[in-house]
Design a binder for these strands. Structure first.
Lengths: 130, 130
DNA sequence: CCTTTACTACGAAATATTTCGTAGTAAAAA
DNA sequence: TTTTTACTACGAAATATTTCGTAGTAAAGG
């Protein structure tokens, strides 16, 4: 059963960057997250800290004490969150047409032959299943 | 040539709703746009007016006087804007993998057999072209 | 012991976005 | 002619988001 709207508030862009890191690297400290973000962005340590504290309040992250620092874990699932954001995006930007989005995504992005094959596989499955 | 980043500032969600209407219905007055939005959202007329004035300042819309009211026209192209937003979205939500996005979009959205065929066509073309 | 280092907590400033109220005005209606 | 209606302009409040500085504190180093 999909879980639309009701659950945790939709993450902002900054929050998504943090979630993204946690999904990839698993439970991490603010320091670890920050050092990663700092490679790309310009932002102070306490900014990242504050964001993660807020995300904790919002129930987007859980945390445990580990010595004098906290270890944060994503409390929302990657696939689920992506789906929610994708739904919103298809709605607002592609007027609800997932097919349109797919066409534009494939048309303009350089996608490898291997990935194209996987997609073709998926298409076949979908068509068979219905 | 794609036009990345440099051009008009990325539209906010509210702005996108307005652009969306203009793309679909062509040049329109604030009244027309507002009456449409009001079906869905709760918002006063002057809110829509102000937004469109701001979009005009930002060069997202152009306008001409038509009697005592203004007729606004989208100054940015739908396809171009979609591409920009799509790129951002793939980056932030799918870590740059368009293929992942496509799979998730097809997997969960009910897409008609006809649309699936169109996508298959596109896949064939892509594969042939390289 | 002191001092430095590496944390958290938290208020509050800086920005960005959205919303609305008020004023001015020209045309339409009475 | 007076009143009502339907616009625009625009300041400013309300929200949401992001950023940072300062304070407190425990451990590590000297």
């Amino acid at each position: 059963m999909a879980n639309h709207s009701s659950f945790p508030p939709k993450p902002t862009d900054s929050e998504l960057e943090i979630l993204s890191f946690l999904w990839q690297h698993g439970p991490s400290t603010v320091r670890q997250v920050h050092d990663h973000l700092a490679e790309t962005k310009e932002a102070g340590y306490t900014t990242t800290l504050k964001l993660m504290q807020i995300m904790h309040e919002k129930e987007l992250l859980s945390r445990t004490e580990e010595g004098r620092s906290h270890v944060y874990t994503a409390k929302v699932q990657e696939a689920e969150t992506r789906q929610t954001l994708l739904d919103r995006f298809v709605e607002t930007t592609f007027r609800g047409s997932a097919a349109q989005l797919v066409m534009q995504a494939l048309g303009n992005h350089k996608t490898s032959a291997r990935e194209l094959d996987e997609i073709r596989q998926l298409l076949n499955n979908l068509e068979n299943n219905h």
